[in-house]
Design a protein around this nucleic acid. Sequence first.
DNA 1: CGGAATCCGGAACGATACTG
DNA 2: CAGTATCGTTCCGGATTCCG
Lengths: 112, 112
Amino acid sequence: MPDFIIDNRLYYNPVEFVMDKIGGAYKMPILWRLKDKNCRYSELKKSLSHISDRMLSKSLKELEQYAFISKEIFAEVPVRTEYSITEKGQNCIPVIESLRNLGLEWMKNDDS
Amino acid sequence: MPDFIIDNRLYYNPVEFVMDKIGGAYKMPILWRLKDKNCRYSELKKSLSHISDRMLSKSLKELEQYAFISKEIFAEVPVRTEYSITEKGQNCIPVIESLRNLGLEWMKNDDS
DNA sequence: CGGAATCCGGAACGATACTG
DNA sequence: CAGTATCGTTCCGGATTCCG
């Protein structure tokens, strides 16, 4: 298994690469929220009720940086911002769904 | 999206639960190595060339704790230990493969 | 409203040395 | 061979504050 250098960072395998991009506690849940509906910052914040502003802000920025989501600002008063999922983000949904199902299965069996 | 309390730990969604069990930089790669071949500690160590003993040992122990892998000790001289994947672990393989493919795709397009 | 910047503690992690 | 113990560092993530 070869190593990869992407964006000046070293990865040892493709899974690690994916994890770096959409891993962690929040990114996949955010993508999941956006999969069929654009959301405003405050909607996401409410939906992921436990998340801090710092982490939501940080996660959104990183997801946007790598084009998993995009952000549109409407010059209204007050300003409105909407986040939407991109095609690249949509490509992650099946995997996230599989992960979800796996988790639901484990939880059901309570053999954690 | 409800919360879950499992094993005295709070999870906010199924994905987070899965990530807690097989997330991180090493666990999925380890499962991937074991998917079609039992391995000894030193084989895994060599295969994941960069991993430290500490992390390999820790990851293996946690994977075993939650029954993703099992460990068999052969009372030979010198002692031989073999790790193998369980059915629960095998159930993760399709998801890991999807993650891998996703990563390979992203890497190919170099749009990281 | 929609964030960004700063500070801070604890958990995660790596390197090294050691052991049955 | 298959790990464990210890130490030092890094970094994740929470709380708080501030800004346009």
